[in-house]
Nucleic acid binder design. Sequence first.
DNA 1: CGTGTAAGGAATTCTGACACG
DNA 2: CGTGTAAGGAATTCTGACACG
Lengths: 146, 146
Amino acid sequence: MNNLPKEVRGLFGKHRLQLGIGDLARVAGVSQSKIRYWEQKGYVHSIKNDEGQNHKYSLKMLGKISLIKHFMDEGFTLQAAAEKAEQRHELMDVVQKIMVDRFIELTQCDGHQAINLGPLDDDPQHCVFAVIENDQTKLRLVPTKN
Amino acid sequence: MNNLPKEVRGLFGKHRLQLGIGDLARVAGVSQSKIRYWEQKGYVHSIKNDEGQNHKYSLKMLGKISLIKHFMDEGFTLQAAAEKAEQRHELMDVVQKIMVDRFIELTQCDGHQAINLGPLDDDPQHCVFAVIENDQTKLRLVPTKN
DNA sequence: CGTGTAAGGAATTCTGACACG
DNA sequence: CGTGTAAGGAATTCTGACACG
């Protein structure tokens, strides 16, 4: 049933995935000097590894940095953008938790690739499937197999 | 409605997120020399950036590396583990697509944090919510707000 | 305030070779 | 086959300073 080993799903867990500043800057499209300044001001935090020489950042921080950039592009000051980002980036925790808990089974649905997200809490006889059809993701209810 | 800007979701898109070999090795728990050997044998691929000096790897490759490790730990040879991983790691594409397409709205449900994954394809009057309750993720059907 | 750059040292990564088994 | 290591060069990152505005 579960065809994605726990270790693999665990990769996306809260503080597992860590990126260096170079990758962070490239992926988020924000300069390293900006990230360093934001960190100095306390808006961005790096992970303290034991032997930490270089700074490492979590996926959550990547999300926050991207949000700060987004709000600054809209005209907010750094401080205002950071405050707005602070409220929103909790989302990253939820996203990660759902990935770890729910992305359990890769399967097929009417010949399309799908992920079985598991049964509905109120109606365990039906599972929610996320199906990829024609490059779109659709949600379907499928009777639970026993 | 959509409170996660597109740029932020796009971060998880197919080839956006790239990690260096050091981060990859630490996160996956696989030595750098193993990763280099697996790449040399063609089981792992790095992303060719324009100015590519250092090798960069996608989230999908992180998943594949973790899967190869998993199967080798179970006793398979490198080749057999890589073949088994090859079949499974397509999952990563699906996971990423769903994150980009479906993780749209952070909201509340009965006082708990939730993500609105959007309407059911067969029944657009109901949306699927992933709700975090007592540190567990539950799936619920909620009438679509108009 | 918010960001960039030049500067020198420290840590990281690259490649091809060689060891072991 | 599958992995580790020593080796030297190349690219990356770190910090504190200073420029600009």
